[in-house]
Deep mutational scan, measured.
Amino acid sequence: KLLSSIEQACDICRLKKLKCSKEKPKCAKCLKNNWECRYSPKTKRSPLTRAHLTEVESRLERLE
């Protein structure tokens, strides 16, 4: 599967780190437990900047 097509777990399953069936409108866990089942939009991760990478590398060197 391509990364862009990976389905996201519902908010509660993601928060509780449960295996989500990803069914809509309610996944199996939410249906069974009568929880409100919501699927928040995916958040875009910002790409690493060179400055951040350099900072992490220098912190790693100090720890070694």
Rank of each mutant, 00 (worst) to 15 (best):
K1Y: 11
K1N: 14
K1L: 12
K1G: 15
K1S: 14
L2R: 12
L2A: 11
L2W: 13
L2M: 15
L3F: 14
L3V: 12
L3H: 11
L3E: 15
L3K: 02
S4E: 13
S4K: 08
S4C: 13
S4R: 07
S4W: 09
S4N: 10
S4D: 13
S4M: 14
S5Y: 10
S5D: 15
S5H: 12
S5V: 11
S5E: 11
I6F: 13
I6Q: 14
E7H: 09
E7C: 12
E7M: 11
E7T: 10
E7L: 12
E7P: 10
Q8P: 09
Q8T: 09
Q8H: 11
Q8C: 04
A9Y: 01
A9P: 04
A9K: 02
A9M: 01
A9S: 04
C10R: 08
C10P: 01
C10Y: 04
C10M: 07
C10A: 05
D11S: 05
D11P: 02
D11K: 00
D11I: 04
D11C: 02
I12N: 09
I12F: 15
I12G: 12
I12R: 13
C13E: 06
C13A: 00
C13M: 01
C13F: 00
C13K: 01
C13W: 06
C13V: 07
R14F: 01
R14I: 00
L15P: 01
L15S: 11
L15N: 11
L15V: 12
L15K: 10
K16G: 00
K16Y: 00
K16A: 02
K16W: 05
K16I: 01
K16P: 00
K17T: 03
K17R: 08
K17P: 02
K17L: 05
K17Q: 06
L18G: 15
L18K: 04
L18I: 11
K19R: 14
K19M: 00
K19L: 07
K19W: 04
K19T: 07
K19Q: 05
C20H: 02
C20W: 02
C20V: 00
C20Q: 04
C20P: 00
C20A: 00
S21H: 03
S21I: 01
S21P: 06
S21F: 02
S21G: 06
S21K: 03
K22T: 00
K22I: 03
E23A: 13
E23Q: 14
E23G: 10
E23I: 09
E23H: 14
K24H: 13
K24V: 15
K24E: 13
K24I: 15
P25A: 02
P25H: 01
P25W: 02
K26F: 14
K26I: 15
K26E: 10
K26G: 13
C27W: 01
C27I: 02
C27L: 03
C27E: 03
C27A: 02
A28W: 14
A28N: 09
A28C: 10
K29L: 08
C30A: 06
C30Q: 01
C30V: 05
C30T: 07
C30Y: 06
C30E: 05
L31F: 15
L31T: 12
L31W: 14
L31I: 12
L31E: 13
K32L: 07
K32A: 09
N33W: 02
N33I: 00
N33Q: 14
N33A: 11
N34M: 14
N34L: 13
N34I: 09
N34C: 14
W35F: 13
W35K: 13
W35A: 15
W35M: 12
W35G: 13
E36F: 09
E36Y: 05
C37W: 02
C37I: 03
C37F: 06
C37V: 02
C37Y: 09
C37T: 02
C37M: 04
R38H: 13
R38G: 14
R38P: 05
R38Q: 13
R38Y: 15
Y39Q: 07
Y39S: 05
Y39F: 09
Y39P: 00
Y39I: 02
Y39T: 06
Y39L: 06
Y39V: 09
S40L: 04
S40W: 05
S40N: 03
S40V: 07
P41S: 06
P41Q: 06
P41C: 05
P41M: 08
P41W: 05
P41N: 05
P41R: 03
K42I: 08
K42M: 10
T43L: 13
T43W: 02
T43K: 05
T43D: 08
T43I: 15
T43R: 08
K44Q: 15
K44I: 15
K44A: 12
K44H: 09
K44S: 06
R45A: 03
R45S: 01
R45E: 08
R45Q: 09
S46C: 01
S46K: 03
S46Q: 02
S46T: 11
P47V: 06
P47K: 05
L48M: 08
L48I: 07
L48D: 00
L48S: 03
L48K: 06
T49K: 00
T49Q: 08
T49G: 00
T49V: 07
T49A: 00
R50E: 06
R50D: 06
R50P: 03
R50H: 00
R50A: 00
A51L: 11
A51M: 10
A51C: 10
H52P: 01
H52R: 07
H52W: 09
H52F: 08
H52V: 00
H52M: 05
H52G: 00
L53Q: 02
L53Y: 04
L53E: 10
L53W: 06
L53A: 03
L53V: 12
T54M: 08
T54Q: 11
T54K: 04
T54N: 09
T54Y: 08
T54C: 08
E55I: 09
E55L: 10
E55D: 13
E55F: 12
E55S: 14
E55R: 09
E55M: 14
E55T: 12
V56I: 05
V56A: 03
V56T: 08
V56E: 06
E57R: 08
E57I: 00
E57N: 01
E57Y: 07
S58R: 10
S58T: 11
S58L: 13
S58Q: 15
R59L: 06
R59M: 07
R59T: 04
L60I: 08
L60F: 06
L60A: 12
L60D: 02
E61T: 13
E61F: 13
E61A: 13
E61C: 14
E61M: 13
R62K: 11
R62S: 09
R62P: 09
R62F: 12
R62I: 13
R62V: 14
R62L: 13
L63Q: 03
L63M: 13
L63E: 03
L63D: 01
L63H: 04
L63W: 01
E64C: 09
E64R: 08
E64P: 07
E64I: 10
